[in-house]
Amino acid sequence: MAYNIIVLIKVIPDLEQIKPDQQGNVSTKNLPLRIETLSENSIEAAVQLREKHGGKVTGIIFGTQESVPIMKKAYAMGVDDGVVITGYPGNDPKYTAAVLSSKIKVMPHDIIVLGNQSADSYTGLLPGLLAGTLGYPLIGNAISIVPADRKVRVKKFLENKNVEVEAPLPAVISVAQEINEPRLPPVMQIMAAGRKQIVTEVASISNKSSIKVLSNTAPKSERRKMIFEKAEEGVPVIVKVLKEELR
């Protein structure tokens, strides 16, 4: 049986390039953008499902105008169709869920795939908020997804165990990084992706978030940073510290 698969793709700045200013404030303005780590795993999982069972993979990015070119990478990885919704404010997963679910509702869908926790904001709340809003079962942190007719079997990767569960479709499935190794698309596919159409639209719901950001600053590192390039100099210092601390 063929499935309509929706994959939610987050676009994030290159976090390694964040440099706090003198006051410790951090900003991601003008940093290069990329597909979030677990979103890549989600794309891979969605494309593998289509390769095996047939159907269609639609990617949705809730981001900004700058996210539009990033959809091309998703196309190159095998996403069939893409929509970029602009107006992403950044820190309220409830609003993100409201915008995404209102879009999903008007698209054909059986399986909705997204990352369990994104590498930047790391809330892990979006899958639940989305499943709750759509009224679908949620299966978290998947390492394998096997649909059969109108049901899906999923292995969940938990902290102390792996659990296999089954749920009816449509369902929201969040994936773990361990589910797959995202493919590196061949050059031909990247070129073809460049010519494909990307639909963009503005978020249809207004943001009534109750969350007010008070500050966003780098955690202070008050480490001594005594670095020795010669082991013979560093070893005695460290031995002394260890003996004092671990007496």
Binding site: Y122, L129, G132, L138, E159, S174
Partner: peptide
């Protein structure tokens, strides 16, 4: 607790109870 199941419950609960939620 921020575990896989915990986060799933938190998100579902926040949506069902229409309460705001903050993670981690």
């Amino acid at each position: 607790a921020s575990t896989v199941n915990g986060r799933d419950v938190a998100g579902l609960l926040a949506s069902k109870s229409n309460a705001g939620s903050i993670a981690e």
